[in-house]
Design a protein around this nucleic acid. Sequence first.
DNA 1: CGTATATAATAACGCGTGTTATTATCTCCG
DNA 2: CGGAGATAATAACACGCGTTATTATATACG
Lengths: 164, 164
Amino acid sequence: MPPSPSSERLRNLGFLVRDVSRLYGRHFERHARELELTLPQCKVLAHLQRNEGISQARLAELTETDPMTLVRTLDRMQTDRWVERRPDPSDRRAHRLYLREEAKPVLARMWKIADQARSEAIAVLNEKECEQLLELLGRLHQNLQQLDTRATETRATEARRPAL
Amino acid sequence: MPPSPSSERLRNLGFLVRDVSRLYGRHFERHARELELTLPQCKVLAHLQRNEGISQARLAELTETDPMTLVRTLDRMQTDRWVERRPDPSDRRAHRLYLREEAKPVLARMWKIADQARSEAIAVLNEKECEQLLELLGRLHQNLQQLDTRATETRATEARRPAL
DNA sequence: CGTATATAATAACGCGTGTTATTATCTCCG
DNA sequence: CGGAGATAATAACACGCGTTATTATATACG
């Protein structure tokens, strides 16, 4: 049943991606310990830096985060005084998100740490290989995103027609 | 400060790997919903299939899981009657892990689902590109593993010399 | 022998993630 | 206008993951 010789290695792909992600996160958080920020929190700050005033829903899109996950992340970041929720004057359901002044000086250090951590991680790859890796992961990402969207929309459509 | 043109894209690497991992997991679990198994649980079953009777510590090594994480995963898998913990006759601290009979027929389906999910995910890559991706991720993984081990050992050494 | 150190498993806590359900509000259309 | 359906945010619950600390046992060494 296991066909070509590469098939057996291929079977590790899912686990491999997951492990790399986990180890990369650990590695980054070792460097970032002093910041008192997790990786998803950094992602939020990075996007907020260039998009202050957006809604949670929009930030969820930008960061590709589940809106519910984002609520909790923001809860903690608000408690830790990184960000602020202000009421949206034009939509009483929504909040607008802002960086607090305390967060701004940290952003530069954050990027520095991220650059440092990444360069250690990819030290085993040359420039061309990095480029390839980014390209391949990017294609995979785009495809998975599409599969996800498709599945989500299918389920939403079905939910709208419960009689079927 | 941002130097070469590829540098800006490079900065996404950490996020990109994480997103691919998350989306891959979602995709797999959509297919595996009928199995009532999560991806880490599948990993446990896959390793146990070829290594029945091992200890939790050994399984943690094989699956590259934090031992504490594994405890909880096994707790649930034991409740769900996938696996069994039996006392190790030669070491009263340890347990030996076994698949329950109920789990065995599921393994074949599990692999089938995994193959299906993966082939959908990598449909956008040709065979050579898959090979490259595996190779590059493998190198990255090995390096991150080494960085992790080194950091962990350093901390352990420091802990042993509290006076310093 | 007996003490120090290491190891196997677990407890307790915080965070990220996904799911389903709820509430308030908005929007669009008849 | 007014009701149907979409949307913004949140609540509650389960799982995975990492960290520190604890307990019981094993091992190694003086």
